[in-house]
Simulated assay, not measured.
Amino acid sequence: MSPLQPPHQPGLQSPRHPASVDEAVDVTVPVTVDDHEACPATALLRRIGDKWSPVLLSLLARRTHGFNELDRSVQGLSRRMLVRTLRSLERDGLISRTVHPSTPPRTEYALTDLGRSLRDLLVTLGQWAVVHEGELETARARYDAAS
């Protein structure tokens, strides 16, 4: 059972995780390591919480990009990490990769429909962060002063 389980299970459901999309989610107690690892939100938060995925999703939300374009577009992102992040995003179905048979071969990356739906949520999260930035800074300063 996932740690994020609704109290009741009607509506849209996943075979592995019967949480309804429209219901509030409760956390089962105790939360075991297996519960945490099996929760679909855990994997998603790891993906969007890494250093480069949100940046690449934002770039690809605008238009398709070639590999070299992406490489030039993000300072501080090594080619090795770019390849790794693109592969992970492709594996999760958030981006697509198309290899054009030319000399040399040209690879293009694009956001999938699934990636666009996640991008919409990331935009909302980013807007929340901007609106509440001052409150977060005040809370951090208060906490740091008390510690």
Rank of each mutant, 00 (worst) to 15 (best):
P15V: 02
E23Q: 11
Q127I: 11
P18R: 11
D34I: 05
S117D: 14
A41W: 10
L77C: 04
P105H: 05
Q75I: 04
Q13M: 05
N68V: 09
R62I: 15
R140S: 11
P18F: 03
M1T: 04
A110H: 03
L70H: 02
L82R: 01
P105N: 05
G49K: 10
S53W: 06
T103D: 14
L77G: 00
L56F: 04
T64L: 09
T32I: 03
H36L: 15
S14A: 06
D71S: 12
L12E: 13
S58F: 11
D92C: 00
P105V: 01
E137N: 12
E69R: 09
N68G: 06
L121D: 14
G134D: 15
V25I: 13
V99S: 07
G66Y: 09
R91F: 09
R63A: 15
E135Y: 11
L70A: 02
R47I: 15
L70W: 04
V55I: 15
V83K: 12
E108I: 01
G49M: 10
I95A: 00
L59C: 04
V83I: 13
L136D: 10
V130A: 13
D113L: 12
A129E: 14
V29A: 12
D92W: 03
G11M: 04
T103I: 07
H36R: 11
L136N: 10
P104V: 01
P10W: 07
S117K: 14
P101T: 02
L94W: 02
A145F: 06
A145T: 05
L60Q: 05
H8S: 13
L82C: 01
V31N: 06
L122H: 09
A19K: 03
L86F: 03
A145Y: 07
N68K: 12
D22Q: 08
L136P: 03
L77Q: 05
S78V: 00
L56D: 02
N68M: 11
G115D: 03
P30T: 01
S78G: 01
P15E: 12
G66C: 10
Q127W: 10
A38K: 11
A139Q: 13
M1H: 08
L122S: 07
G115H: 02
T107H: 03
H100P: 00
E69S: 06
G126W: 11
V99C: 05
S73R: 11
R16M: 09
L125N: 09
A43E: 14
R97A: 04
V27P: 01
D22M: 08
H8M: 12
S73E: 15
P101W: 10
V27I: 14
T107M: 08
Q5M: 12
R97C: 08
A139H: 09
R84I: 02
L57K: 05
H17D: 06
R79L: 07
